[in-house]
Amino acid sequence: MSGTVRHEIDLPDGRVLVGHDTGGPDGAPVLVWHHGSPQSGELLAPVVRAASDRGIRVVSTARAGYGGSTRRPGRTVADAAADTGHLLDTIGVTACHAVGASGGGPHALALAARRPDLVRGVVTLAGIAPYDGTEDWFATMADDGGLRAALDGAAARQAYEETAEFDPTSFTDADVAMFSGPWGALGADAGRASESWPEGLVDDDVAFVRDWGVALADVAAPALVVQGGADRVVPRRHGRLLHGALPAGELWLRPHDGHISVLAALPAAVDWLRAHAA
């Protein structure tokens, strides 16, 4: 997105991590955006607008394997959060809010669990809950093939990806309508990421169905879980699982929202952060 700064930092293990940053005055509050799966990590206009309208700076990272960031096969959710924390330390961010959509939700929560010194509040929108080993975890997903393949490891998930096709029933009519407005850039970015960095999605899915490397019980910051009752990608049960495991969690269940239309709640969620997180 124009007007943002692109960071490329060297990580301690020799990998490169790419970040994006709207910048802002010293002392401005910071929102760390955790992108979905797949995405490039570049900032999306509706995210920047929801923050900038409230005087908030936005920073994001491209997770390992996406958007120019070096791949890290076998990474956990906690590993990705450690990368994000390293970028924030490098650019001098000392306090932030963590916000994640869909596949970004686990990573926002992991940053809060790993870095309570940094994260003052956290929001997930259509976020995935830790895999609990039950069939109920997959219940009502329109297309669960990728996550089921991930249970057998990266090679199986990669093989699945080579023939996978998007199931249009994953999105509700309200979801599809979002792509005709400001969130259209999300669809375009996801398509580009899927073509350019399929390994990022593979590694995300494998991380989601394995031990995240952090416990939700360690998320001490106020946490808001926003979930769509009509979501066919990450069903509403995931929102209840997250809410039940978070010590300071609040649940907004939006009964008519799907996986994309729930993002319309982002401005209100940012207001919630301002009211509930110091």
Rank of each mutant, 00 (worst) to 15 (best):
S2W: 10
T4G: 09
V5L: 14
V5W: 12
R6I: 15
H7W: 08
L11G: 10
L11Y: 03
D13E: 08
L17I: 02
L17P: 13
L17H: 02
V18E: 08
H20W: 12
T22W: 01
G24S: 08
D26T: 14
A28I: 07
V30F: 07
V30P: 00
V32I: 00
H35N: 12
G36A: 14
G36P: 03
S37D: 05
P38C: 13
P38R: 00
Q39C: 13
Q39A: 15
E42G: 10
L43Y: 13
L44S: 10
L44P: 09
L44N: 12
V47K: 04
V48Y: 11
R49C: 05
R49W: 12
R54L: 11
S60V: 04
A62C: 00
P73F: 11
G74F: 02
T76A: 03
A78C: 06
A81W: 02
A82R: 14
A82V: 13
D83A: 04
T84V: 05
G85L: 03
L87S: 04
I91Y: 09
V93A: 09
C96G: 04
A98L: 05
A98K: 14
G103T: 06
G103K: 02
H107Y: 09
H107A: 09
A108T: 07
L109T: 00
A113W: 02
R114Y: 06
R115K: 00
R115H: 02
D117V: 00
V119E: 06
R120C: 00
T124C: 00
L125F: 05
I128A: 11
P130M: 02
Y131G: 02
D132Y: 06
D132I: 01
E135H: 08
A139D: 14
M141I: 01
D143F: 04
D144P: 10
G145D: 11
G146W: 08
A149G: 11
A150R: 12
A155V: 13
A156W: 07
A159N: 06
E162Y: 11
E165L: 15
T169G: 01
S170G: 14
T172V: 07
D173E: 15
A174Y: 10
A174G: 14
D175W: 03
A177P: 04
M178A: 11
F179I: 07
G181C: 07
G181P: 09
P182D: 15
A185I: 13
L186R: 13
A188N: 14
R192I: 07
S194I: 08
S194E: 12
W197H: 12
W197D: 10
G200Q: 08
V202Y: 03
F208Y: 15
F208A: 11
R210F: 02
G213A: 01
L216Q: 00
L216E: 03
V219E: 03
A221L: 04
A223F: 08
L224P: 05
V226D: 09
G229Q: 10
V233D: 08
V234W: 10
P235H: 01
R236D: 14
H238V: 12
L242V: 05
G244T: 08
A245V: 01
P247E: 00
A248Q: 13
R254A: 12
P255D: 14
P255W: 09
P255F: 06
H256E: 15
S261G: 10
S261A: 14
A264C: 10
A265E: 15
A268I: 03
A269V: 05
D271H: 09
D271A: 15
W272Y: 06
L273E: 01
R274A: 15
R274G: 14
A278L: 11
